[in-house]
Amino acid sequence: MSSQYFKLFSTCIPVKGQSESLICDIEYGQIFPIPNLLFEILKSNKTKNIEQLKDAYNGKLDKGIDAYFNLFAEKNLGFYTDTPEEFPDLNLKWQSPYKIRNAVIEIENLENYSISNTLTQLNDLGCEGIQIRILTTIDLDALLAEFECVVGSRIKYIEIFLPFNADTPFEKLIKWRNFDPRITKIIQYNALEEKVIEYKENYYKDVFFLTKKSLSSTSKEQYSLDRFAFNIDTFAEAQKHNIGLNRKISIDSFGNIKNYLTHKSTFGNINDTLISNVINLTEFKKDWNTNNTKIEKCNQCQFRFSCVSNVEIIKKNRKHYKLEECNFNPLTNQWN
């Protein structure tokens, strides 16, 4: 038995944090917190069989090693093998054919800039996901007409935030959902309650949500375990890129082009600037590759390959920092 090797499945990847480590199961989107000592053990088990591993710790961790490996096997996170060389690591090279991957579009009225033109440009660039933030009560039917180009497009996902308005008949929202299946989520903020509206006819999941929360251009990023993305695409992208800002574009309610709405810099206005030109600007892309490993505090965090944050990055004394800190402390492993 002990001349065998223990291997985690190559989609279950240990990530070290300052005070606690994590096994990220990026095949099935689950995580398994482990002590840092175990992280070290798992790192060296690539070259050592179980017997050699135990020897390396002078037999002091025999029971712990056995208990953990058995648990991992039982939880379907790993397996025992005589031929570890047959199972190469997952190649974490990331690549994408989409020149823009996601976009945030803020809308105050239909006059400030052309929404349909913006959507058409995004589609041409391969944009997968779009977040529409409507700030005011506007004519929903007139807005819908701007979305004609979405039907049959390459766009994969659209979520819409709009202010709750008791006078808006629900039928108007249903019309949006029926317009195209790409419209996957319709969230009304400033509502009187937190609620998922049961309306599943022909659909595969919930689409309509109410929330008491409010929304503005300065709405801050939230951090919690259930917001992290544990999957192969995101984990691979996070190795070398900032998973919030990489290939993202935002348009504020005046048509200003930004990396993200809360950022200071603007890169022209959508009324006279093509998105395809903006994304060639070095300055616009400057933080696309600033991944969490390069950012102070984040580089100590076990969630650094799954935490999607759009916060502005600042540089001080050749070090990168986030403009706003999150509510997790990797030193104490505590959420505030």
């Binding site: 945030v104 997968e128 299946p181 595969y204 999957n231 999607v308």
Partner: peptide
């Protein structure tokens, strides 16, 4: 699972696409 949350099917029931991460975490 953001992927299963974001996936959508067209009228014929075919899965057309998923996105793999949240666009922003404001709510």
């Amino acid at each position: 699972n953001i992927m299963s949350e974001s996936q959508f099917h067209n009228d014929n029931g075919y899965l057309v696409g998923v996105i793999s991460k949240p666009i922003s975490n404001i709510f």
